[in-house]
Nucleic acid binder design. Structure first.
Lengths: 298, 298
DNA sequence: CATCGGTGGTGCAAAATCGATCCGGCTGGC
DNA sequence: GCCAGCCGGATCGATTTTGCACCACCGATG
């Protein structure tokens, strides 16, 4: 009889492409993965991978096994989801995933309020760059900005929130200096992988052709606060920052709509219901800030 | 993350009804099962079993989990089946399941011939009382006696063999003694759990009302050879035994039809094809013996 | 009422597994 | 052309898991 847990290692290697990558995902030493794969292949009596110097690649047999291994994983996830969905106690873990910017510049105070309100709920904010997969139980609730509602995952329950607008911002000091006849050039501050959005205009100010690139949203904000130039920001970031003002003559642009996503069986959990009700009220209160109506255009 | 192999232990306990029964099935110490179930419950954060003095019984949560655990098992079995089905080498394991009587009194010489013909095939004859489940990969080939072809499992591939007839037998010596005016009473020899089949008649001989019961087919044959009385036997047993004769005036009765069963993906294996072709030829040659036509009625 | 076969549970020693580390080989970028 | 960063593989000591023996308990049975 094969060890079912070995199939989990098999999946990790098949996806990671190498033993070491798989070990990183699972969180074990790579030699463990090596041994478990060898054990699985021995018990099945067939090679699942070609052992190349560049990594492990699936053989034809491995490709066929992959399909069933995915089925096992799906059943395992459903199993966990079903057990978790029965959990009606208030104490326990609640994992929320959302974009880092939303966490840092808008919702962290609300998360703190919620945590104070329910001290027995253990909270985990999964706020990395990638989208966490609710079906895989990487998180219980997701707060997402969705541009086209047709792109919402069909298997998830979605609760609509306010629309999200963005604008073009610069530092208050830089605007004053520019009005006084700026000595320094004004540059576009962009995130490398994104570039300048097509909707953004410079408004009344003039920028040099030489952009200033950052890899990270926080670095971008820090740069614009330093008066390096102008950049596009969500209104809830730019309008809430006393050091920043909208670039005169620039327009707002709708980024998308906020959605609260939960998964079927997990949604029935008391913790999840408490959180979604709490945070959707807070989001509704933030609607003017999010849509850019909190301040009057100057 | 849960250990997927723990789900296998969960299934064994759910089916066995107790930790010790599950340990017996899996082939480990019962304390191991105890610890793995405790680990699973801890990681899931829910009780799967009520710990009664009489054993482990599923909780409501456990019932819900059982369904998904079965799915995982089904995927695991399909996975093994698919890998095994790719195996086109002649060397390796071949497991055959069939009724003990068929093994001992008819086919063992043929199995021996096959093993001599293919010395690199490791053979295993699974000839316990219960039907082995091909879908669970407990065996690769099954030889079954089927009374109604509608009862054949639909998911298996079935190859029809000869019909199987039975009759009423007694020892040659007893018949002679009875014809000479028997001093001893002639008894019905029956297997306890079966009783006297409704189709069987005593023929010309007279039996006492007191039956002789055995638990086991081999004991039944030994008893009739000892001249204890008359009994129903398959023709291939009774006709092939020089010590036995059919009871004068008794009739034959069709027991059913022999079928060679294999499972879809496993059927494509070279070993399985070699075996089914070999054994179906032998079965065809045995047709007169199996249908009771090998000897003329006296 | 004692016994016997079944249950779950618990220390402790042995065995199997795992993690850290080192090694050789490959590859791509400077 | 060299070096850094991957890769798989092997080794060895530490850690975890397992098996074994035992216990208490419960129910049926003689």
């Amino acid at each position: 009889m094969i060890d079912w847990d070995d199939v989990r290692y098999f999946l990790a290697v098949a996806r990671g492409g190498s033993v070491r990558a798989a070990a990183g995902r699972i969180g074990v030493n790579h030699s463990t993965v090596l041994r478990r794969i060898a054990q699985l292949e021995e018990r099945l009596g067939a090679q699942m991978f070609e052992k190349l110097p560049s990594g492990y690649r699936l053989t034809a047999a491995g490709e066929e096994v992959l399909e069933l291994a995915n089925q096992m994983e799906a059943s395992s996830h459903q199993l966990e989801t079903r057990v978790f969905g029965r959990d009606q106690s208030v104490r326990g873990l609640l994992r929320v995933t959302l974009a880092p910017t939303l966490t840092a510049h808008l919702l962290m105070p609300d998360f703190a309020d919620f945590a104070r309100l329910h001290p027995e709920i253990e909270m985990e904010i999964v706020s990395s760059g990638e989208l966490a997969n609710l079906t895989n139980r990487e998180a219980d609730v997701a707060i997402r900005v969705v541009y086209d509602r047709k792109t919402l995952p069909l298997n998830l329950h979605a609760l609509k929130g306010p629309d999200l607008f963005g604008g073009v911002y610069m530092s208050r000091d830089l605007l004053a200096a520019w009005r006084a006849g700026a000595p320094d050039p004004i540059r576009w501050i962009v995130i490398s992988m994104h570039g300048i959005p097509d909707w953004a205009s410079e408004g009344e100010v003039r920028t040099t052709a030489v952009p200033f690139k950052t890899t990270d949203g926080e670095a971008q904000i820090a740069a614009v606060r330093q008066g390096l130039g102008i950049t596009t920001l969500s209104c809830f970031v730019g309008d809430a920052d006393p050091l920043l003002v909208r670039v005169p003559g620039s327009d707002l642009h709708m980024h998308g709509t906020l959605w609260l996503l939960t998964q079927g069986e997990i949604r029935t959990t008391k913790r999840v219901r408490l959180f979604t009700e709490f945070i959707s009220r807070r989001l509704a209160a933030y609607a003017p800030l999010l849509t850019g109506l909190s301040i009057t255009r100057d």
